[in-house]
Amino acid sequence: MTLYLLLAVALLIIGLHGLFVCAQLMRKILALNVLTTAVFLLLVVLAQAAEVLDPVPHAMVLTGIVVTVSTTAVALGLMVRLLERRGGPVSGRDRDSRNS
């Protein structure tokens, strides 16, 4: 159990590091995903720590995963529009010239 707790802390640090240090937008999104995974791991560890296996944290993690899928989808959509505007690697220039 201690091992999993340490793992959660390590994931937390990796996520925070990625969020603040990485310049690429995609990496920031991945860092946020790692960060939420750390919290989910903590919740699952808590569920196991209870004397009788506690189902509530499991339900929380399941709901959390659904929320994370939605936020990641919005993040990716926003990133694509942002890169289109900057003319970045999503071939934004081509699309702009076609529109005009």
Binding site: L32, L35, V56, P57
Partner: peptide, 18 residues
């Protein structure tokens, strides 16, 4: 990014409380 980091920190606190 700011608000999502905020929610994650909030959830971490809630997990500790639970």
């Amino acid at each position: 990014l700011a608000t999502l980091l905020g929610s994650t920190l909030y959830l971490l606190g809630v997990a500790l409380l639970y």
